[in-house]
């Protein structure tokens, strides 16, 4: 793995990009890595662009704020690309050579010719994953899309281990957590969906595990240096 990995998560409000960044960074921290995570600093609204960032690595990280030069970009919703619901245009702006793109979409998106050329030239593979479809299938709610995306990332890159991830998930969903308005409402919705907290944790982990396998298979199939 690179000495430092910078991840940018682009999605729409309500999909859990902020939550997944915090969970991923917490998992990294639990593994003894240095990490910092933060959301894009806006008044996030349901279905409006939302973005969050994770930096992790082997030495102390000072850098914070909006992430301009990511190694990995995770796109949580096709509209980030197809409708330009993104703070960064084009959506891959700033990505480093040999990076990775993970896109939540049931089928490959019609990227422009220039986009495809750029990504190929920079040696950036695209991993399309049906995170929402799988979330509905496994957890019974599209609110688990972010868990699917985390599973895809972990399977494809092995960036954090499953044990640390589980601990981070318990940290976030297993106890009282103070979130801002919209996030708090969604937390309530998830809680209502599952009769018990244990059930919610279990479904989250199931989603991550299943998509992890898909990610691992995909990584095996393309053999990119970034992914080792």
């Amino acid at each position: 793995m690179r000495k430092r990995v910078n991840l940018r998560m682009s999605g729409l409000g309500g999909q859990g990009v902020v939550t997944s960044a915090h969970v991923l960074a917490t998992a990294a921290s639990k593994e003894g890595k240095f990490a910092i995570s933060n959301p894009f600093f806006g008044a996030e609204k349901r279905m409006a662009p939302a973005e969050s960032y994770v930096r992790m690595g082997d030495e102390k990280i000072f850098d914070r704020g909006e992430l301009v030069y990511p190694d990995v970009i995770m796109v949580f919703h096709p509209q980030v690309i197809t409708m330009g619901k993104c703070y960064t245009m084009p959506f891959y702006e700033g990505i480093k050579s040999g990076g990775l793109l993970i896109i939540n979409s049931d089928e490959p998106l019609p990227l422009g010719k220039d986009d495809i050329e750029f990504l190929e030239k920079q040696n950036i593979p695209i991993f399309y994953v049906k995170a929402t479809t799988l979330a509905v299938e496994i957890a019974g709610t599209e609110l688990a899309t972010n868990m699917g995306m985390l599973g895809a990332l972990m399977g494809a890159t092995k960036i954090v281990g499953m044990e640390a991830m589980e601990a981070a998930i318990i940290d976030r969903f297993g106890k009282k957590y103070v979130a801002s308005g919209g996030t708090a409402t969604l937390d309530e919705a998830i809680k209502k969906k599952f009769a018990k907290k244990e059930q919610l944790l279990k479904k989250n982990m199931e989603t991550i595990n299943r998509v992890y396998e898909i990610g691992a298979e995909w990584a095996e199939s393309i053999k990119s240096p970034m992914l080792v």
């Binding site: 960074a25 990490a35 995570s37 933060n38 600093f41 914070r64 704020g65």
Partner: peptide
Amino acid sequence: DGFFVSHTKDD
């Protein structure tokens, strides 16, 4: 610095 510290998870 708002957000840079307030909304950032850090050690």
